[in-house]
Amino acid sequence: MTVFYACAVLGALGLIFGLALNYAGKKFAVETDERVSRVRECLGGANCGACGYAGCDAFAEAVVKGEAKVNGCAPAGEKGAKAIAEIMGVETAASERLVARVLCQGANGVAKERYVYDGYKSCAVAAGIAGGPKECRFACIGLGDCMAHCSFGAIKMQDGLCVIDEDVCRGCGTCVANCPRGVIKLLPASQKVMVKCRNSDVAREARRVCMHACIGCGLCRKNCPSDAITVENGFARIDPEKCINCGKCASVCPCQAIENLSASDADR
């Protein structure tokens, strides 16, 4: 008899709870826009936060609500933006693909060392100790804060410099935000020539601390056929709008501070 009661009670409890949940499921049903999940699938999925929202889910919701732009997710790239635009039924302006680039060539042996750093492996910590382990106060510290924050594994450390794999980089800008030296910049992928130095010290000082420092001599500016180069604050900079990627500046630079990626591609 007890067995019968036991079965009956458990069965009845299960049935009651089942019915109650069924009723509750209908009563408390929340209508979700199926576009949110479809937009979510087009995104980078790293929750990097570069869009300014709390994560990919929050961004997808904002897109569907019309608060965020369809091309607001940098990691998703142009392809993702197009897919999202299709879901939302809007046009998207083609945006140039950006990649992160390290504007420093101060590898070990190239830039002078100030002291041997053996502390906690963090650029932010090292930067606060007597101006950082390298003499140049603008140089990449090379302890990998950017690498630790990259959600896509595009950054590795080599000879005390971070090296970004441009094929893997999605241009989210997380590394830019986490570099205590501000030595990483987002540049258009089509821009092949760049000044890889941001040292604004006077020429002698800059030359003392690094073999490849830009000394602001202006030779590149004089030789530029398209007036794309300006020298300000002691270092040259190239305007990607005007630059025609001829690479003349890189060949005349006395300090090899300018790098021409298309030339190094050819070398390979």
């Binding site: 949940l21 009563k27 408390f28 049903a29």
Partner: peptide, 11 residues
């Protein structure tokens, strides 16, 4: 727990 989850999701 299931019920609470549904209830919270709505309210």
């Amino acid at each position: 727990v299931q019920f609470i989850e549904m209830f919270l999701k709505k309210s």
